[in-house]
């Protein structure tokens, strides 16, 4: 029933697993980034896969699950800290069905599945977001915050507002799947 969201076919690259990545997105260090499939990276997004741990060998810096959306102009940057005198970046792991709104900056350590992050949010370093949580638009989540499962956070600094309904998981799952289906290339139509 919902109207399709069109994109120009020349802008997006579609992978075998159904990931759609905008050519206008900045993907640094793509060999260190994992996309689970059917994940959309919108134009203007910046994903810093190049900020990897300093130890040698292959390392996964940012991993995203299935049916994720990285909104327009988002910045995904792995968190860093100096531990015992050595500076290091730490990997960022994001589950399935996670939507990140346009203009948000994410430096979280872990984001669970079925998480919604609003527009223009700042998710600080080493934030842990559990499953089915939701962050309102324009929220500032300070570093090291833990957002428990099924809770709605808002404000600056973001704080607990209310519990989300028990069926959030199904709701978010169908919404993210629907969004992927609505996201269609324009050239097929004309």
């Amino acid at each position: 029933m919902e109207s399709p969201i069109y994109y120009s076919k020349s802008e997006f690259i579609e992978t075998d697993t159904g990931n759609k990545v905008s050519r206008r997105a900045t993907i640094a260090g793509p060999q260190n980034i994992i996309l689970g499939g059917k994940t959309i990276i919108s134009s203007g997004a910046i994903i810093r896969g190049d900020l990897r741990q300093s130890r040698p060998g292959h390392a996964v810096v940012i991993s995203l699950g299935r049916y994720c959306l990285v909104g327009e102009g988002c910045v995904m940057r792995p968190p860093y800290k100096t531990y015992r005198g050595t500076f290091n970046y730490y990997p960022m792991k994001i589950g399935d069905h996670v939507h990140i709104g346009a203009g948000s900056v994410v430096e979280a350590a872990t984001i669970g599945s079925h998480v919604e992050i609003g527009k223009n949010c700042i998710i600080g370093k080493f934030v842990i977001i559990k499953d089915c949580a939701k962050v309102a638009d324009n929220s500032i989540v300070p570093p090291n915050t833990v957002i428990p499962a099924l809770s709605f956070f808002a404000g600056s600094p973001a704080g607990f507002v209310e519990d989300l309904p028990e069926s959030t998981q199904e709701l978010v799952e169908s919404q993210t799947k629907q969004f992927y289906q609505r996201f269609q290339p324009l050239d097929r139509d004309r």
Binding site: M1, S3, Y6, E11, S42, A102
Partner: peptide
């Protein structure tokens, strides 16, 4: 779920227009 076809039509057109523009804001 309820939809107004004339709205759906318009949103579709608008997003199509936006997608056609070379350097517009793409879909939102």
């Amino acid at each position: 779920s309820i939809a107004l076809p004339h709205q759906v039509e318009k949103f579709g057109h608008a997003s199509a227009e936006a997608a056609k523009r070379p350097y517009g804001k793409a879909t939102v």
